[in-house]
Amino acid sequence: MHPLRKRRLILIIIMIIGVATATGFALTAFNQNLMFFFSPSDVQAGKAPENRLFRMGGIVVDGSVKRSDTNTDVWFDITDNEKAMTVKYSGILPDLFREGQGIITKGKLNAKGEFIAEEVLAKHDENYMPPEVAATMKKKPTEYIKE
């Protein structure tokens, strides 16, 4: 390679490495701010801000959804498979909201330690399959033997 071109190539490589390193440091420094939500474990460990809105994400615990008879209030627990937190929300839930589904809520903790949500977003997973496949996957191995 021509020496001039070689020098240009080296300069470009140095530039890219430099920019990547600087960005890497910046992103590591702001790591916490780049997190879109806290897990219930983080919240119970006191990592979430007090008296300020924050987001909490997790899986809706099976059988934990309780609805009010008179209005749109709903209570449910969300978990990250380690700790669980109770969430209270009043309003219309997204279509994908169901037990076992990942969701993200935005709100504040009240004095009782309940999470009062202002907004509930459904987080869908990266799996795509037809309903019949999903139905088969939900069955436990013992159910196959029975069939």
């Binding site: 890219i16 992103l27 997190m35 987080k123 997973d125 799996n127």
Partner: peptide, 28 residues
């Protein structure tokens, strides 16, 4: 030069869903 500096954003887009908690789901 601007385009080459911006290349640093490409792996960030790709790995953003793994490095940080996001509403967007992970790679399929």
């Amino acid at each position: 030069i601007l385009a080459l500096v911006g290349v640093v954003n490409i792996p960030i887009i790709h790995y953003s869903v793994e490095w940080w908690s996001t509403l967007h789901q992970g790679p399929t």
